[in-house]
């Protein structure tokens, strides 16, 4: 999610840079600036809400996610600066980051779904992942991660 935050900030900056040149035309100013304000407030709300809903478990997951993103970016910078000589090793490392990231997000979605919906509704049918208990999602996560890293090790040689 933290990665997404940075994306969002980038997007905001993008929107801002796009907004400034259009200011002379008075008719356009109004919608563009409101769009920008709405965007800002949207980001703010999301932020606050995110920190409000944080449980220790999701915090752990999110920290791991942040770590993976940093690791991926680091590898990418390395490739840009020094070159991609053992290309399969780079790919293996990078994809292991991406893959683990994706798996973690899936795990987070599944766990979050359970707690949130469980508290509000308490009904089985309203849940999105109604066939998957948190235990099972964790088991699935481990299974998939094992396979992922097995292939990565094989790929890296």
């Amino acid at each position: 999610m933290v990665k997404d935050k940075s994306i969002a900030i980038k997007k905001a900056a993008q929107a801002q840079s796009r907004a400034t040149p259009t200011t002379p035309a008075t008719t356009v100013v109004q919608p563009v600036s409101t769009t920008f304000h709405e965007l800002q407030s949207a980001i703010n709300t999301t932020f606050k809400d995110y920190f409000r809903n944080l449980t220790p478990r999701t915090k752990l997951i999110d920290l791991f996610l942040l770590f993976l993103v940093l690791l991926g970016v680091l590898q990418f910078i390395y490739v840009l600066l020094i070159g991609n000589f053992p290309f399969n090793a780079f790919l293996g490392g990078f994809i292991s980051c991406v893959g683990q990231f994706v798996l973690l997000v899936s795990l987070r979605l599944q766990i979050n779904d359970e707690t949130k919906e469980g508290q509000v509704e308490g009904e089985e049918d309203s849940k999105i992942f109604k066939f998957i208990s948190p235990e099972r999602s964790f088991g699935d996560f481990i299974f998939a991660s094992l396979i992922l890293h097995f292939i990565v090790i094989h790929f890296i040689n």
Partner: peptide
């Protein structure tokens, strides 16, 4: 829905990596 995300991203990440073997 999140189910789509879970299924597709897992398949893609693992499948692509595996296919490169």
């Amino acid at each position: 829905n999140p189910k789509l995300y879970t299924a597709y991203t897992t398949w893609y990440a693992l499948g692509t990596l595996a296919s490169m073997q």
